[in-house]
Design a protein around this nucleic acid. Sequence first.
RNA 1: GCCCCCAUCGUCUAGUGGUCUAGGACACAGCCCUUUCAAGGCUGCGACAGGGAUUCGAGUUCCCUUGGGGGCACCA
Length: 495
Amino acid sequence: MTSDTVRVRFAPSPTGYFHVGGARTALYNWLFARHHGGKFILRIEDTDRTRYQPQALPDLLEALRWLGLCWDEGPQVGGGYGPYYQSDRQELYQEYAQQLVKEGHAYPCYCSPERLRQVREEQRAAGIPPGYDRHCRDLTEKEIAEYEAQGLKPVIRLAAPLEGTTSFDDLLRGHITVNNRQLDDMVLLKSDGFPTYHLANVVDDHLMEITHILRGEEWLSSVPKHVLLYDAFGWEMPVQAHLPTILDPSGEGKLSKRKKQTPGKKEMPTFVHEFREAGYLPEAMVNFLALVGWAYDGQTEFFTRDELIRYFELEGVSKSPSAFSYDKLEHMNAAYIRELGQNDLAGRLMRVLQEEGLDADFETVLQAVPLIQTRIRTLKDAIPLLDFFFVEEIDYDPELLIQKGMGAEGTVEALKAAREILAAMESFDREMLEATLRQAAKDLDLGLGPFFGGVRVACAGRRVAPPLFGMLAILGQVTVVERLDKAIRLLAESA
RNA sequence: GCCCCCAUCGUCUAGUGGUCUAGGACACAGCCCUUUCAAGGCUGCGACAGGGAUUCGAGUUCCCUUGGGGGCACCA
C-alpha cells in the first residue's frame, strides 16, 4: 500500500455521550492514519431518528478535541467527500437502494413490524435461529401494486444468497467464512426512507474512498452481509480489522454495558467527559487507551503522542478482549501529573478549583504545586489538599486535633506552645519554620508526629495535608496564628 | 438455541519451536526513607485453562473439550 492513500474513518452514531470504548476506536484509527500519513475522517451516522440525542454531537466533538484526535475531514472542517452527516446524504442511499432493486439484488418488503416480531417469536419457540422468513422476497408486480394501493411503505431488503458460503479476510483475525444460511435478508432502507447502518456504511465507505475499516469487534458478524453488498454493487471492500472489545474491570461483559451502580463501590467514569471532569489528563488518557489492546514491546509503557504515531501498528493489536483497569489509568495519570511543569499543573488546577467554587489565586496554587505534585493521582485529588488555602474559616471536627498518646489536654498544651513560638517568628519561610518547629519539638520533648500533627489539623482542618512547613509558609503567619487560636479554643470548649 | 471470534500472573501484556527454572507494568504484601499522606528505592506473591496429536523438542503448530466475549432489529 502506498502511504499517501490511507483513508480511515471514525463513524459514531450520536445516540448518547461519547464512551471510552469509542475513544479507543477513534484513537486507533487516528494513530493508524497518522502513522501512514493518511487521512482520518469523521462521519456522523445519524440515521436513527428514534435514538438521536442532541447533546451527543457536541459532546463527541469536544471529547475528540480534548483528546487531541483532530480529524482531517468531517463536521466543522469539511472536506472533498462530504457531506459528512448521513442525514444529509439520504437521496444517495435511496438511489443506491433502488439500483439494487432494479438489478435484482434487493426487493421491497411490506411486512409489518408486528408480523416480524411474531415470526421471530415463533422461530425462537421452535428453537430455530431467528431471522426474516423472506415472505416478500418473491412478490409479484400485482402483489406489490396491491400493497402500494393500501398505502403501505415498504422497506428495502437485500436478497441474500440461500446457499453457499461468504468469506472475507480480517487483518487481525485472518480468513473468516460463514455459511450463507446464517445470513438473512437484511433491511437496507427503512420505511421512513432512512438507510440502515449496513447500507449507509457501505455506500459511504465506498464513496469516501475509505481504505481501511478499523472498528469494534461487535461488527465482525455483520461483515459477511457487507461483503454481499459490496459484491452486489461491484465495489472493492476496504481492508477490515476488528478491534477487541473493552471489558468491564471485572472482566465480565463489555465496559459499555456495565451497570453504572456497583453496590458499595464508587462509581467509575465511562464517558470521556466524565474522565475529564474526574481530573484525568488527556495525554494520560491517550497513552492508557492506546495500551488497552495494543502493546509495543511489552516493556515500554509511556509514550509521547509522536512515539505512539511512530510505533503504532495493527500487528501489535491484540485479538482478545481486554479489561479496563482504572488502577492502571490512575497510576499513569499520576505519572503524567508528576511530569508536568509547575506552571502547567498550576494552570490546570486553577480550573478544577474554580469549578469547585473555590476562590483560588494562581500565585498560591503555584507555590503549593511542589507540595502536592507527587500526592495526587487525578487533578481532583488536589481539592482536599488545597481547599483550606482559599477559605476564611476552616470547618472540622475538633476531635481530629487530638493526637495519639497526648490526650486533649496534652494537645492543647502543645498547640499553645506552637502558637507562641510561631507568633514570635520574624521570618516565616519554609526553612525557618522547619528549623524552629523541629527545635521546639525537641525543647518540649514531644514526638514529631503528634506535635506536627496537631498543628497540621489546626491549620488545614484535616489529618492528611501537604507537608507542614511549606503549607504554613503559604498560609502565612497571620492565618496560622488565627487558626491555632481557634483550634485551642475549640478543644478547650469540647473538653 | 444458532453463528462468529478469542484463550500466558487477579488485571494489561512480552513471547511467533530450543536462549522460558516464562520477562515487564498495575494491583497486592513486606522492608527502607519519613511530620501526615504520597512519591522514591529494594524484596516478595503470582500465569502458559484441560486433554490429545505433530516434533528430537511446544506457551509457541493442529484437533477436541471447557471457559470467556460478540452477534442473531425498520439500533448503530
